[in-house]
Nucleic acid binder design. Sequence first.
DNA 1: TTGCGTACACTCACTAGTCAGTATACTTTG
DNA 2: CAAAGTATACTGACTAGTGAGTGTACGCAA
Lengths: 198, 198
Amino acid sequence: MPKDAAITRDRIVAAASRLFYGHGIRAVSVDDVAARAGLTKRTLYYHFRSKDDLIAAYLAARDEPTIVIVMGWMDAAKGSLADKLEAVFAQLARLGRHPKWRGCGFLRTAAELVTTPGHPALKAGAAHKKKLEAEFASRFADAGLADPEMRARQVMLLFDGAFSAMLTHRDASYAEAAGQAAMDLVRGEKMRAVKRRA
Amino acid sequence: MPKDAAITRDRIVAAASRLFYGHGIRAVSVDDVAARAGLTKRTLYYHFRSKDDLIAAYLAARDEPTIVIVMGWMDAAKGSLADKLEAVFAQLARLGRHPKWRGCGFLRTAAELVTTPGHPALKAGAAHKKKLEAEFASRFADAGLADPEMRARQVMLLFDGAFSAMLTHRDASYAEAAGQAAMDLVRGEKMRAVKRRA
DNA sequence: TTGCGTACACTCACTAGTCAGTATACTTTG
DNA sequence: CAAAGTATACTGACTAGTGAGTGTACGCAA
């Protein structure tokens, strides 16, 4: 039955996700993941060729859901674009206050795997961030903001900066400061001419 | 002679710095560091109680020099506050284009050691970022910027965001986008009343 | 009976940290 | 001043444990 295989695979990815996110890639062994998934390492290696494959699957499984969550925050918020951005960063701060929060899985993986440039997990992480940036840009364009791509990029920089600072200081208020900056960047910018260099 | 000990210690820290920064904390063994420093592991353990001690020493040695470099960029740049910030981020982009660049050692260490909350290296990293933020705030205050502390915090968020994005995408132009955002945040803000919430 | 999914037991390389001992140089003492 | 003692800086070989990945056999469903 191929369905069983898919179920087992998902269970392994779920176990890997919890452990890799909670403790880091290198800190977690394949044995740990197998034990957490309730099966032996040999079974895990039946479903995944290597630990690197498993890491890639871990991030791939986080891509779409993360984007849905963040854009859900934005679309659910009432008011102006600035208000919506404030809501996004307020929600990020709320996450950051959770005791099990460990920063951004994509950024932390990028930091850990920095020496293996072609790693599929790194590509997945970069693609994920690009997608999120594009979602912001699309909404900024709809709102009539000048230079939506650049503003989206700057908001992403604040977003990733908030992740880093919250992780460094264990202080979620950094996300709120980032939200204020994001608001300032999109406020009163609607019709301003694009006089910046490309 | 205690001078010999200091020299050897420094050589170990220098070797650790290169390897930890280049490959990551967990990816580098104590044997690797000892070999790079040209001595045995036993000698390394004569100078450091544990690998954790060595990690802390690695970040401690990077603290002050990093701040001097970044503030040197800022103070050497001519023009307005915005111009000086543009210069800082331009220099960051220049660093990011170097083939041996591997992101921010402090942020990457924070990401790797996320499961050991009290680790001295994490405290060193947090203190380092706070110091840098304070240096920005001091210069913003001197320039008569309204709410210098908040702006300094936001610039730090852009700074760390630039590190993260450059590492994720291997694209140094993110630092320049961050620089543009930083300029926008300090420009035309000199005398604006502080109407934001605390 | 074929082949898919699982388990046990294993390999071999590597890891942080330790044991016991040595060469050198400075200090104390007869 | 010379001999003995002591602290310093160092080494090679080791331990106990963990790492990713594998060979082989077994049960179960079609």
